[in-house]
Design a protein around this nucleic acid. Sequence first.
DNA 1: CTGTATCCTTAGGGATACTG
DNA 2: CAGTATCCCTAAGGATACAG
Lengths: 138, 138
Amino acid sequence: MGKSNSKNCPIRFALDLFGDKWSLLIIRDILFKEKRYYDEFIESDEKISTNILADRLKKFEEERFLTKEIDPTNKRRFIYRPTQKALDLLPMLTEMILWSATHDPQTAVAPESHRKIRGDKRSFIERHKAKFRKKGTD
Amino acid sequence: MGKSNSKNCPIRFALDLFGDKWSLLIIRDILFKEKRYYDEFIESDEKISTNILADRLKKFEEERFLTKEIDPTNKRRFIYRPTQKALDLLPMLTEMILWSATHDPQTAVAPESHRKIRGDKRSFIERHKAKFRKKGTD
DNA sequence: CTGTATCCTTAGGGATACTG
DNA sequence: CAGTATCCCTAAGGATACAG
């Protein structure tokens, strides 16, 4: 299902870009855990392997989800920062999290709290975006 | 990354359930294209093969995304209908569609229209839900 | 019509060693 | 530190034939 194939279907378009096993987990680390460095991604619970991580970071840079620059505080490291394109995934990811919150028996949340979270969604997202306005880039 | 592994991460929880190549496309067909029968899924553009489709339908039934019943209008077919758990994916999918609408150069939508779509999101989702209240189930 | 059952292929991913 | 480069392996998926 190559990229040329996502004609006119926005869901397929999205899946072609981040519908694999690792992409959204990396995006999660960037947007919610504020990771910015290669070794920070490597340390994640899921134990991504070095070649896969490098490949995804490259793709994300090519697709303009991330920028890669030399870290000003340490000229021997790279810093990866989310672009607006990545930040724009926050609403979708927030809805995904809300969905899991209601349907995961392990973390199940009462409907009242769910409504509260949903009510807070905008501020939740705005809070995150604000963070990245300092750290992020476009 | 088996299911037992999605401890405390709602994104991983969601990806374990529908993070493969086909699941969200089937959900799309159910929620947006209102497909209900095996052969309707088979006819989709993406040409899913019979064994994969059967496997996903079974999993979705087990995970309570779908119910499977004998079609009252034709006792020799099955009808698959979305549960509330599946319907609850509408907000996430809508955000995914909105994201693609802004970032897919092919279907790119002007920011004004985008804001309009976003403003209409609730009614969009409610319209879909209403449809399924007749056809759907829980 | 709605699937199973097979068989086969391949892309994606894991482990590990190595490098600028 | 931030990756390549290998090598290998497996799960996922395609094609097709068959079955209830």
